[in-house]
Design a protein around this nucleic acid. Structure first.
Length: 545
RNA sequence: UGGGCUGUCGCCAAGCGGUAAGGCACAGGACUUUGACUCCUGCACUCGAAGGUUCAAAUCCUUCCAGCUCAGCCA
C-alpha cells in the first residue's frame, strides 16, 4: 500500500540528480537531517520536510539525523523535544541513535566564530538593534557599513570573549560576519552571528549568555554531523549563499549542500504557528490536537493513518520552486484509500428515526448474521432520518410511504404510515416486513429493490456521540482565511450496533454509508460515553433531485 | 522600482529538441445487500503571451506579461 518509495523516486527529480551528481553514485553515503526548532508542534508542512529527509535517506540506504535546532532559548521549551519525537515516530520514521541538539555544539560554534574573527571575517559590533536595522538599508538601497567594522582581530577576540563572559547586557553587542553591506542579498549584509541573551537554556542552562543565529549554526551543525545534503524549504533559498559562505570560510573537509524544495500548503487549512495559537487562544480550536487541524496531533486524533499522510505527501509532489496549494479532497482520497483495508464495516445511525415493524412479533429478538457478526433485529429499530422522505424527490431510493427498501442484512420493509407530533414533525414511521426476503438465506428475493439502508435495533443500540468534522477554516476568494461555521457537527444521539461497545482507540470502523470513524483518543476512558470522530466521509454520487 | 524564484487541464504533477505520463476532482456507463468499493470511458491539437532558430520546440534564443518571495540581535 505504501509505495512512497516509488513515488519519491519519480518526483523531486532535481533532488535526485543533484544528490547523484554530488555523491557520484555512492548514494548510500547520503546523509540528511530533519532540524525542527523545539518551539512548537509539527504539522503537515513539517511532515513534508520529515518525509523528504527521511524518505530520501531510506531510498538510498543513507542516514537521516534528528537535530533539535535549539539556538534561541527565548522561543524553545523542553516539552516540545519529546512531542516532536513522538510525532516523527508516529509518522513512521526512525533516526536510530542520532538525536542531536544544536546546543550540544555551542562550544564548537564558539570556536568557529573565533576562527572567523582571526581570519578577519567577523567583528564585534556595538550598534543597537534599531541602529543595526536602519543600517541594513533596504530592498533597493545598499546598507551602511558599521563604524565598528574596522576593529582589530585582537580587539574583536577580546570583546567576543567578554561577550561570552557576560560582561555586556542583552543587545549591547553582536558578533557580525564581514561580508558585503551592498549585497543585493540582504542575508549577506554583514549578518549577525552571535547575539547576547542572558537567558536560561533548556539544555545548557546558564552556561551561555551568547547564542548563535540560525544562519551560522545551521550549516555548521550540518557539517559537524557529516550531513551531505541539507534539504529545506524554499523560504531558505536566499540563505543558501550565507550557508555556503560559512562552510567555505571554515574549511570543512566535507561540505554539506543545501537544496530547497517547495513547501506544501493544503487548501482550507492553517499552518502558521501564531495563527494556530490564536485559534486555540480564542477558543475556536480545541487545542493543538483539534481533529479539524492538520497538525500531526490533530490528524492523529482525527484518525488519519500515517501511511496515508506519507502517500499523500509523495503524490502531492516534490517540486522545485512552485507555489502550490493542494486541494483538501486529495488528502481525503489517500485517507480513504488507506482506511478501507483496515476498517471494520458496521452499522451506526447518526440521526435516529424510529421505525416500528408492525407485523414483527413484539418482544422477539432475531439474531442475524451480517458479515460474520451477530446483529440483533427486532420490532423496533432506528434508521437514518435522512433515509426517509414523506414526499420523496425523484430518484430517492430510500424509505417513503408505500416504498419498499432492504434493511441491510435483514428483510425488505415497506413503509405503511407515519406518526407526527403536534408540530407536524415525523416522530416515527410504521412498516411491514416480508419474511420471504430474509437476507443470507441463499434464496433470491422475490423481487428487486433499489435501496438498501442501514439500521440499529432500538433495544440493543449502543448510544454514542458522533463528531462530524470539516476543515476549521475556509479559503476566501480574496486569499483570506475565514472560520468555517460548519467545521463541527455533533450528533449526540447516535446509536451503533452492539459490537462497537468494545471498540478501542486503535480500531478503525466504517459506519456503513456514513464514513470512517474511530474512538476519540482525547476521551479514551469514556467519561463522556463513547465519542466517535468521523475521520473522513464516504464519497457519494447521490445528488438530491 | 534591487535580488531570488515560478508560470504545462479546476487542483497537484511528469516532461529537458522528436510530435502532451500519472494522480485528485469532475462527467458518463457497468457492477452492487454501502447511491461506497471496484471496473470501463471521457476529460490540454496544446504547454503565460508574442516573435525567432530548426525538417521538428512545452523543451533553445529574444522580448513582454503575470504571480510568489526577501529588509528578526527568529528558525
Amino acid at each position: 500500500m505504501d509505495d512512497s518509495r516509488h513515488i519519491l523516486l519519480e518526483t523531486g527529480a532535481f533532488i535526485h540528480s543533484a544528490v547523484n551528481e554530488d555523491l557520484k553514485g555512492r548514494l548510500s553515503e547520503l546523509h540528511t537531517r530533519f532540524p525542527p526548532e523545539p518551539g512548537g508542534f509539527l504539522h503537515i508542512g513539517s511532515a513534508k520536510a520529515v518525509y523528504i529527509n527521511f524518505e530520501l535517506a531510506k531510498i538510498y540506504g543513507g542516514k537521516c539525523n534528528l537535530r533539535m535546532d535549539d539556538t534561541n532559548p527565548a522561543k524553545e521549551e523542553a516539552e516540545f523535544v519529546q512531542a516532536i519525537q513522538d510525532e516523527i515516530k508516529w509518522l513512521g520514521y526512525d533516526w536510530e541513535d542520532r538525536l542531536y541538539f544544536a546546543s550540544d555544539y555551542f562550544d564548537k560554534f564558539y570556536g568557529y566564530a573565533a576562527r572567523l574573527i582571526e581570519k578577519g571575517l567577523a567583528f564585534v559590533c556595538d550598534l543597537s538593534a534599531d541602529e543595526l536595522r536602519a543600517s541594513f538599508g533596504g530592498i533597493d538601497k545598499a546598507g551602511v557599513e558599521s563604524p565598528f567594522r574596522g576593529r582589530s582581530v585582537e580587539e574583536n577576540l577580546d570583546l567576543f570573549a567578554r561577550m561570552k563572559n557576560g560582561e555586556f547586557g542583552d543587545g549591547a553587542k553582536t558578533l557580525r560576519a564581514k561580508i558585503d553591506m551592498a549585497s543585493s542579498n540582504l542575508n549577506m549584509r554583514d549578518p549577525v552571528i552571535y547575539r547576547i541573551a542572558h537567558k536560561t537554556h533548556s539544555n545548557t542552562g546558564d552556561k551561555w549568555c551568547i547564542y548563535p543565529m540560525y544562519d551560522f549554526a545551521h550549516p555548521l551543525g550540518d557539517a559537524i554531523e557529516g550531513v551531505t545534503h541539507s534539504l529545506c524549504g524554499l523560504e531558505f533559498r536566499d540563505h543558501r549563499p550565507i550557508y555556503e559562505w560559512y562552510i567555505n570560510n571554515l574549511d570543512f573537509e566535507q561540505k554539506p549542500r543545501q537544496i530547497e524544495f517547495a513547501e506544501i500548503s493544503v487548501e482550507n487549512t492553517i499552518l502558521g504557528k501564531r495563527h494556530l495559537r490564536k485559534l486555540i487562544a480564542e477558543g475556536n480550536a480545541d487545542g493543538w490536537d483539534d481533529p479539524r487541524l492538520v497538525t500531526i496531533m490533530g490528524m492523529r486524533r482525527r484518525g488519519y493513518p500515517p501511511s496515508a499522510i506519507r502517500d499523500f505527501l509523495g503524490n502531492a509532489g516534490v517540486s522545485t520552486a512552485k507555489n502550490n496549494t493542494v486541494e483538501f479532497a486529495m488528502l481525503e482520497h489517500f485517507v480513504r484509500e488507506h482506511l478501507a483495508p483496515v476498517s471494520k464495516v458496521v452499522m451506526a445511525v447518526l440521526n435516529p428515526l424510529k421505525v416500528v415493524i408492525e407485523n414483527f412479533p413484539e418482544g422477539e429478538v432475531e439474531m442475524l448474521n451480517i458479515d460474520g457478526r451477530e446483529v440483533p433485529f427486532c420490532r423496533e429499530i432506528f434508521v437514518e432520518r435522512e433515509d426517509f422522505m414523506e414526499e420523496p424527490v425523484k430518484k430517492f431510493f430510500r424509505l417513503a410511504p408505500g416504498n419498499e427498501v432492504r434493511l441491510k442484512g435483514a428483510y425488505f420493509v415497506t413503509c405503511t404510515g407515519v406518526e407526527k407530533d403536534a408540530d407536524g414533525n415525523v416522530t416515527e414511521i410504521r412498516c411491514t416486513y416480508d419474511p420471504a426476503t430474509k437476507s443470507g438465506t441463499g434464496v433470491e428475493p422475490p423481487r428487486k429493490v433499489k435501496g438498501t439502508i442501514h439500521w440499529v435495533s432500538a433495544k440493543h443500540g449502543v448510544p454514542i456521540k458522533a463528531m462530524l468534522y470539516d476543515t476549521l477554516v475556509l479559503d476566501t476568494p480574496e486569499g483570506e482565511k475565514e472560520l468555517n461555521p460548519n467545521s463541527l457537527i455533533e450528533m449526540p444521539n447516535a446509536l451503533g450496533e452492539p459490537c462497537i461497545a468494545d471498540a478501542t482507540v486503535d480500531d478503525r470502523f466504517q459506519f456503513m454509508r456514513n464514513g470512517y470513524f474511530c474512538l476519540d483518543s482525547k476521551d479514551a476512558n469514556g467519561t463522556e460515553g463513547l465519542v466517535f470522530n468521523r475521520i473522513v466521509s464516504l464519497k457519494s454520487s447521490y445528488r438530491p433531485q
